[in-house]
Design a binder for these strands. Structure first.
Lengths: 405, 405
DNA sequence: CATATTTAATTCAGCGGGTAAAATATTTAC
DNA sequence: GTAAATATTTTACCCGCTGAATTAAATATG
């Protein structure tokens, strides 16, 4: 049922307004209509219309106004609006090498339950991939006596090159095949809309919607884990590059013909900062006596082991160089370093910050804020859930448009 | 005279449509209304309205339709539209260390005349700066028996940190002062609107409007000259960063604690690729026998001088590394290298391209196009003129909105 | 306690940009 | 010359947003 151009454009405009309102409510937590109008520079009448639509879609709800609250003013009290957390259940998945992590989240991004599903094979065929995801979802839903049908959206994060707009995976370390179009697979296997995205972009979405990037227009999210990832948010939108394969911060080169990276190239940042790089170096420093874990390297460094310290110091130097390059190129409002406490420890130090400062041109202007966000191991799955929540919001608003009275 | 919200938004919308039409005509050169409608996914009625406005503003004109041209089809012939080149005269200036270059261009970007005004002082006070610009403009106008009053816009390019939206210069190597607000200065000294921008951004604008970036959404322009500059065009718009000091490609670090750069930091790309870097290296290679020029280095390399060759080779290696990092981060449609024939010679070689390829992740996808654009020495001034043309377009369309019948 | 006052939210008529459809313009085909 | 084809313009209308008027819901006041 193709709509005419006129109603297309008009509906588009209206959806944009509704999404802007929804987004503002999400950012503010709870807010009255009149404040939305003034913040978005729009008229109260428009806000009334938009919020009515959003309420009827179950996306937001009114909460009881606190009478004579703070400033005991008279006049009709403001009715606060906030996300309607309970109305939709969203699943976020992260596919890692030996594990699928699942989070079921409510519409406000709160974790309802989580589940970890161990993986035998690092690489799967597309069919096995989708089937495994389905199984993991079933088990996660079972934990709260729900079924797949309770889900309003599923969002899947994987490492690799993903064209999120088409649910198309150019390449992923979790798949045996290249160039897989998941739009078919997912539609037949899952009873709700599903989305695939690059994992670093998902974390960026989580920071934007619920984390340290709330309300920011231009910021970068650097993820630290096995590798080094980057999510770029410009003008409030994820920047994915022309072919969907940008933001490969971990593989920017910090040394001409430098250390060998997993990707086969030399001098990648990841080859100095990734966990395998640390382990490789530490092993050499130990004269190859055994395979040390990253945790052990940290422990040894703390207890004064000069070789372990040196490994972490160089990682920090290279990391600082890379971050200062990001600032020199993007001049963002803020850079968020996302990872576990341990992964960030040696990368969010005074020495690294000093090196960043010394690598950014024009030191008299204030440096962009650099914040560390210490996540637990569900960081990626939570990111996926955040993306799912946003995508479901967009779908519900679109449905509104077509079902208009 | 403040307009109401309603007319503001509506007028905005309309201006956006008119600018989109104007932009498309500029990109296509000459095009009929029906083709504009189909290209912009809009209705013929809207195009009729928009083009009528643009014609009345003197921005575009109809050109004689060629009867039964190519395909001898019947039906009413298409009327081609194109920019109305003659209607406005725009000045573009580039302030360099010892010279101000001026271009007077028509509205289609064609050079009407050019003029070079030698500078005694590298650094000037803001007052002297504006006065000098005025003098240079006067002399340039005199060449075609025109006056300053003939100009519809003046665009000024300088090296440094510029907040173009406010005509505010945070810092420039051409000024004795920091944090200069030129909006006042220019308004009193010049009889027409004037704009200041960072010089690399201007070249990017020139590529977008009239050069190799025509019609592209996401591309990068790397300028090679004394230093290495970058202009970033994302989603069709210049990306300037949060504080207007992004795109400092020349000062991204390609070597930890590497060669000393003009900016005082170590390891900057520019410290390996800039002309002063080449001269410094070559002088060492010559055992300090004298100051070689870049042209001589090239000549020596061509005639087999291994030391000169080595200087250029390393510059190329570092440049290739930097470019591959840009691709890894931005994944652009295209990278345009802009400079003189000589400056680009050793940087647009097969060796450098091979190094770029070897530094970009995911080699199975096609590399973004890398094009060299060999400009003459008026590159920067032409860039300024391009920016001026765009700004004047925007102003004229805005005037239309307020003068509507 | 009744009423005035204040502020929030909603309703409603109208503006204005964009559209589809109709009308008009201008050509070639026959 | 007339019909057919194609481009452009005109016209009536749709729809989102707005300002103004209205309604709603609280406090202040005497």
């Amino acid at each position: 049922m193709l709509k005419s151009k006129a109603s297309q454009n008009a509906a588009d405009q209206r959806n944009i307004t509704r999404l802007r309102v929804l987004e503002h409510i999400r950012t503010e937590g709870s807010i009255s209509r009149i404040d939305i109008a003034s913040a978005l520079q729009t008229s109260p009448a428009t806000v009334t219309a938009a919020t009515a639509d959003l309420i009827s879609a179950g996306l937001i709800k009114e909460i009881e106004t606190e009478h004579q609250s703070k400033s005991a003013k008279r006049g009709r009290p403001r009715v606060l609006l906030q996300l309607d957390g309970g109305s939709y259940l969203i699943a976020g998945l992260k596919v890692a090498r030996h594990m699928i992590s699942v989070i079921l989240a409510d519409f406000e991004g709160n974790e309802v339950t989580s589940y970890k599903y161990p993986l035998d094979d690092v690489r799967m065929t597309p069919g096995a991939f989708v089937a495994t995801i389905r199984t993991a979802l079933d088990l996660a839903c079972a934990q709260i006596n729900a079924t797949l049908n309770s889900l309003s959206g599923v969002s899947i994060g994987i490492a690799g090159l993903v064209d999120a707009e088409r649910n198309f995976v150019h390449w992923s370390s979790s798949l045996t095949e290249r160039n897989v179009d998941f739009s078919q697979f997912l539609e037949t296997e899952l009873p709700c809309p599903a989305f695939i995205e690059n994992d670093a972009n998902l974390v960026a979405k989580a920071e934007q919607l619920f984390g340290l990037g709330k309300g920011l227009k231009n910021f970068l999210v650097v993820t630290i884990e096995h590798g080094v990832g980057l999510g770029i948010v410009l003008d409030g939108k994820l920047y994915r590059g022309e072919r969907g394969c940008g933001a490969e911060f971990g593989h920017t080169k910090v040394q001409l013909d430098g250390a060998l990276c997993q990707c086969g190239q030399r001098g990648c940042l990841e080859a100095y900062v990734g966990d395998y790089a640390l382990i490789r170096e530490a092993t050499v420093a130990d004269q190859g006596t055994g395979t040390e874990t990253v945790a052990e390297i940290h422990k040894n460094a703390r207890s004064g082991d000069e070789r372990a310290k040196s490994v972490l110091t160089r990682a920090g130097q290279m990391f600082g160089l890379g971050i200062s390059n990001l600032i020199n190129l993007f001049d963002p409002e803020c850079i968020i370093l996302s990872g576990t406490q341990m992964d960030l420890e040696h990368l969010y130090s005074d020495e690294v910050m000093a090196r960043i400062r010394s690598g950014v041109v024009n030191v008299d202007t204030l440096l962009p804020e650099i914040k560390a966000h210490h996540w637990g191991d569900l960081m990626w799955a939570k990111g996926a859930a955040a993306y799912g929540i946003e995508q479901v919001s967009i779908l519900k608003v679109k449905e509104l448009a077509t079902n208009a009275p």
